[in-house]
Every structure is written in C-alpha cells, then in structure tokens.
C-alpha cells in the first residue's frame, strides 16, 4: 500500500490534510476489519490534539479516533452514518471530519507518508 503524500499521518493511524480534513488510514481500516459504525462529533465541537473525538466500531471491537491536531469541527461526513463500509473501500477518500486548525504549526510534528509507512511496517514486525 502506498500512502498519499498530500497529507500527514499519526501513530494512532489517522491522516490529516493541510486544510484540516481528517480520516483513518488504510492500515487502520484493514486491522479493524468490517467497519459497521462511525461515531463523530457535532459541527462546532472543539477537538484537542491527542484526545479522542469519536469512535469506529467493527463487529466486535470499538476503537477511539484521536485528533491529530486541535481545532473546531466545521463539517462531518454524514454519508458514513448510512454507509460506514466506505471507510473499508476507500480509507483515504472517506474523510470523517473537517476542522478549522487552531495552530497549523501542529501539523509539522506529524508523520510524512514515508515515515508512516515505515512506522506501520515496523509495528507489524513486532
């Protein structure tokens, strides 16, 4: 799997673009298996870097979504409510929330596509 280089990644397996669009990685959806439900914050909610802002559920597991950076939610992907399988089909296209970045400099601390790929392969090696 090659990870698009137009965005940044976290060790919690989220991706974020420069304009504040957030989703989970292909690797994340793959290890979760069939996703059946995505719980997202309301528009207007504040999210904080490193803190949870929602959950994704597979048939028998719940995983937290961690905010890559801080900001205010401006939109959520409502299509996921009725079609959570989009995340499995196209994790890098199926965005979850869009935020107004509080401090764009926070993006600099995140992983590049290459770093993330390396991180994932190292994690798998354990």
């Amino acid at each position: 799997m090659s990870y698009p280089s137009d965005r940044k990644y976290t060790k919690e397996h989220e991706w974020i673009t420069a304009d504040g669009t957030i989703g989970i990685t292909h690797h994340a959806q793959d290890s979760l298996g069939d996703i059946v439900f995505v719980e997202l914050p309301k528009v207007g909610a504040e999210i904080t870097a490193g803190k949870t802002f929602g959950t994704v559920e597979s048939v028998k597991a719940v995983s937290d979504l961690y905010a890559p950076v801080s900001g205010t939610v401006t939109a959520t992907n409502e299509a996921l409510a009725t079609a959570p399988e989009q995340v499995n089909k196209d994790a890098h296209g199926a965005w979850m929330v869009k935020i107004n970045l509080k401090n764009p400099a926070e993006l600099n601390a995140l992983l590049s596509a290459a770093d993330y790929e390396k991180f994932v392969s190292e994690e798998a090696g354990h």
């Binding site: 059946v36 439900f37 597979s58 597991a61 719940v62």
Partner: peptide, 12 residues
C-alpha cells in the same frame, strides 16, 4: 451491536 456491551468496552 455487541460493541455497546460492557465486556467489550471494558473501562469505557
């Protein structure tokens, strides 16, 4: 919808 159940959520 088993993910609502406490033995799966554990401390959550």
């Amino acid at each position: 919808l088993a993910t609502r159940e406490q033995h799966i959520r554990r401390e959550k």
